[in-house]
Amino acid sequence: MSDARNGVMSLEEIQRAMAAAVLEPLTADEGMRERAADGRAMADVAASFIAPNGRLNAFQRLEIYNRQYWLRVLGSLEEDFPALRAVVGGNRFHALSVAYLTAHPSRSFTLRNLGSKLVEWLTAHPEFAGRRHALAVDVARIEWAFVVAFDSAGRAPLTLNHIAALDGGSRLSLQPHLQLMALAYAADELVLGLHQREKRLTSEAGVEHEREESAPEKLPRLRRKNTWLAAHRVDLSVYYRRLEREEYLTLDALRQGRPMSEALDEGFAGSAILEKQRAACVQGWFGTWAELGWICAPEAGA
């Protein structure tokens, strides 16, 4: 509450007012907006808690923080989604990033989680991706899977012998770093081709402006093709592996906690794989999963 005696804002009021101003998107020429979201003149908002000095007025001083915020979060998103940027183009990526971050400002202490809702948001906002919307969503999904697979926990996997001793009623869990994706495009190779990935590096330093404009890259023409993909970590590196549809559905059901027999039923629902071939198929999957360390015992309490 403001101090009624002298009109001075409380710490909480100052922080809310400053955060609201700092999170306001910049103008096209990367300045602070003239009006705050509530319609007040931003110069008045700034002057209500920021003091001018001999060189800068309150608006200009607040604008430094407004710019720093956007440079930092936009840079971080760009670092995590370089292939999405290449697919939609630099200008469109900038616009979608601003819209996304306005809808979903960071709710985490770490910039690592900044893109955690991007796939969901982009799916619901095709107007930001242009004619390559479905491809853009798939690319974003693959890139976010990389972020998660890169540093998520790894648990002790079950060996093939352990798995062989289980029955149809057994429940299993999957390696936490294993990410499963159902895609409309076989976009994994495209992403790998574009992924000259810089490692994220958090620091306390101010950010200088280095934005590059660019049109969408000339990409190889991709046809829609249902694709099932896993991102996982081996020896500290992230790899992508194509899955069969049935394999993906089975893994997905296992992740949701279904007993093994139910998971396999879900995996083969509507499948063209002949009944007589399924046992060999399942044996092959489990052999590969065990080799890759994807299968774990259920977590305690699960």
Binding site: L11, Q15, V22, Y65, Y69, S76, P105, S106, R107, F109
Partner: peptide
């Protein structure tokens, strides 16, 4: 940060 939203900046205090 305020109300669970993070600016990822080192904002000065009054």
């Amino acid at each position: 940060s305020v109300d669970g939203t993070y600016t990822h900046d080192l904002l000065p205090l009054p």
